[in-house]
Design a protein around this nucleic acid. Structure first.
Lengths: 230, 230
DNA sequence: CCAAAAGTGTTCATCGTACACCCATGT
DNA sequence: ACATGGGTGTACGATGAACACTTTTGG
């Protein structure tokens, strides 16, 4: 049964702002690609794709990320719908942007290469096509808000991580140094991290204890009205 | 120049969650209408409409609100894009939801009546069609976050308002009572309100002083890193 | 004169912030 | 033995929360 049939339709796309972090480095990164089709062929862009009639927006966003990285269960959140008439030089397209968080080492780097994609530090972003710059800025703003009030930083780190690694992550997100005593105290005070009996020894001679985020504990606390706040 | 022409297109709509407040009452309200077309004819719904190829999403959202209320410059913010395949029983439609804030007395109430629209307290919401319930819940959550951290409460009140009126507004948004001493102190401490030499005397015998929100002052403070926080 | 809403200050606990030294170990 | 990053405690000021009485005036 089709109602509404007299109304004009539009192209609908999704674009993905994919954030990544490597626990041994100090920079938050973005996965960008060189477009291999017109218009703007050869220029830097976000990964995107059209939404087909039989898939949801969320489904299309997942498909896009999965095509590029091979990963299936990635943290993803809708960012914003961009809908200016002239936003895409190739025609009238409404684009719904999503952002994703992933561990740089976990994905299929061959697949990424095949698509002409590269990890670029958020501090060294090239010029991007269309309104992709705006999308990235909005995503960064949202990420910064989210990371303070939801435990999503852990999506960017392996299951086992050290407190200094987590601190470097937060410093790379907010681009400001944190006091390590205050950072550690506040974090541990929430009671969400389990200390493991194992040390990471790549980074320092002394070694730093690994911790693990306890999601179950987090959900219990949420029930009781707890709010993550860093 | 048309690229991408081989891809299928979709119907794109906007739906508007329109919040309103009347400074002499105690309830936050929502503007709802009885649908006068199929499917779901006769049931409660949000105001919505299709996006045409030559208008932006924001433009479509403004048009919708203006058609219903006669108002031109209304506070409006994009909420979320809803895109499940089966969300609308009448066909595959991607809907971008916006929410608006307005003063109930300011709009053209004749126009609203003609559309079969009614102001309904957010405490007494009827069942809504499709995923409009979800849209409203999301809008309420977002409004609650925004009202704490941005001076948008003033969009729901006339230029001149009293502190008790503002407090009733916040109480109706958050559905909790506030301590009037703390509320007043914190608010005035921000230095954003100008006290007028005039009292509102409908509500009480003593009368409450009118205040005015100083937007210019607000923007100056923002420059200096100030954050609105109630 | 009284009912009804406006207006006003203080105390206490909590939280954020600033800050400097010792520890463990690989080279 | 020394360089490097990991790990720890305390003091102070700011902020949020709780709480009760006086003022004004229309009826």
């Amino acid at each position: 049964m089709e109602f509404y049939s007299s109304h004009p339709k539009l192209l609908v796309a999704v674009d993905s702002i994919i954030f990544g972090f490597n626990e041994y480095e100090h920079d938050l990164k973005l996965l960008l690609l060189k477009r291999n089709f017109e218009p703007e062929k050869g220029n830097w862009s976000l990964m995107g794709g059209f939404v087909s009639p039989n898939e949801s927006l969320d489904g299309a966003a997942q498909r896009i990320v999965s095509q590029l990285t091979g990963l299936d269960k990635v943290y993803m959140e809708q960012l914003y719908a961009f809908g200016n008439v002239e936003r895409d030089a190739g025609g009238r397209i409404v684009s719904v942007a999503y952002f994703s968080l992933l561990k740089i080492n976990d994905h299929d780097s061959e697949l990424v290469k095949q698509h002409g994609a590269h990890w670029v530090s958020v501090n060294e972003l090239p010029e991007l096509i269309f309104d992709h710059q705006e999308m990235v800025e909005k995503a960064l703003r949202k990420l910064r808000i989210r990371a303070r009030t939801q435990p999503i930083g852990f999506e960017l780190l392996p299951k086992k991580f050290t407190i200094p690694q987590l601190q470097r992550l937060y410093e790379s997100i907010y681009q400001v140094p944190f006091d390590k005593r205050n950072f550690r105290r506040k974090l541990l005070a929430m009671g969400l991290l389990e200390k493991l009996n194992e040390k990471e020894k790549e980074t320092s001679k002394k070694g730093a204890y690994y911790y693990r985020f306890n999601r179950q504990k987090y959900e219990e606390l949420i029930e009781k009205g707890f709010n993550f706040d860093l």
